[in-house]
Simulated scan of single mutants.
Amino acid sequence: MDPSELKRRIQGWAQELGFTEARVADIDLSDYERGFREWLSAGHGASMSFLERHGLLRFRPDELVPGTRRVLMVSRDYLPPESRSPQQVLGNPALAYVSRYSLGRDYHKLVRKRLAQLARRISDEVGPFTYRAFCDSAPVYETGLAERAGLGWKGKHSLVLNRSGGSWFFLGALFLDLDLPVDEPVADHCGTCTACIDVCPTGAIVADGVVDARRCISYLTIEADEDIPESLRPLMGNRVYGCDDCQLVCPWNRFARYTQDDDFQPRHDLDATELVTLFRWDEATFLARTEGSAIRRIGWRRWRRNLAVALGNIPPQADAAGEALAALTQELGEAGDQVDRHIRWAIDRLSGDRSRGSSG
């Protein structure tokens, strides 16, 4: 089959499987290697040692999957139309803010499954070929591949932005040994706007497109095993899993599309649940309520650590402060030393006791 015709058909099949866009990138990501090395050297990767362990493999698709000639990059919208307004939740310190991408089912599995279905459809047409499907699941530089494929450009917050869809979408990559025509990159359209940099609660966006994970709430609440630095805890507010502030203020997200996928709709009311309710989950409840969710990967103890910080950020004079203080006091000693250190910090905040300073 003519490669251009095959590409056209693949894009049609991708749309039938629920992908918003499907575009083709070459595998030359060499221009990104220097910036990544500098980012790591500056310590911006925090404790994510796997980034160094994999080295530059993420920029060399044909080394990760020998024989790869092209990468089909797809996007899939995830912003749920039925969820509570993010601004309303963030404005109520008694509620838990959970990043919108994680309200539904685990996107890693869902996107990879659909990409595998797409690969089988291609195989039915052209015969056996080499492929591998990825979605934030291997050393793959999806942002660069998305740029190369023309799905969008890397915004100042480091996420991919699309002129007709903003940034509320997942990326998936299908490595192929097929020689398909490539798409053209698009220009950067952030201009002089610095809204995402200005709004970041912890000042984690340290330069255009450069995020220091050590200050990033998404890293602190999801990836970090260590204690959350005391200096950053008050800045986290009620964000207990991830952070969307940079997306919420981005002008391009006025064009964002709501997902039509039932799998990405909120589950168990996690779009607006009281912090105390979540904090009182025991481990069995946590595992049951997060089954099939990306949230489960952080584990119950890290979940409680995050919630303890958010509870400590409830204003002491607020109606919810008394119940929060009681819950924290009751749960001391139930989830290990690290959680207890965060609980004691929160108790000090709510009780107005500053005498222990930063002793934790």
Rank of each mutant, 00 (worst) to 15 (best):
L270N: 00
S4I: 11
G152Q: 05
R349Q: 15
W303Q: 07
V160D: 08
G191A: 06
Q87D: 12
Q247I: 01
N313I: 11
L29Y: 02
F170A: 00
Q247S: 11
C190Y: 08
F286W: 03
H268G: 02
G12Y: 02
H108Y: 05
G18P: 09
G166S: 07
G144Y: 09
C250V: 09
A324Y: 07
E33I: 15
D31L: 07
I10N: 10
I122Y: 12
S49G: 15
P181C: 03
L270Y: 05
V74F: 10
G203H: 05
R70G: 03
F175I: 08
R148Q: 10
K154A: 14
V126T: 14
W39H: 08
N92S: 13
E33P: 03
A346E: 12
L40F: 01
S41G: 10
P61V: 02
A308R: 09
L176M: 12
F36D: 15
R69F: 05
L350W: 08
V309M: 03
G172C: 04
S47M: 05
R23D: 07
D188T: 10
L220D: 08
F255I: 01
D198A: 15
P229R: 04
R267I: 00
A138V: 07
E291M: 07
I122G: 07
P229C: 08
R254Q: 12
G336M: 06
E38T: 12
D31M: 06
A224N: 15
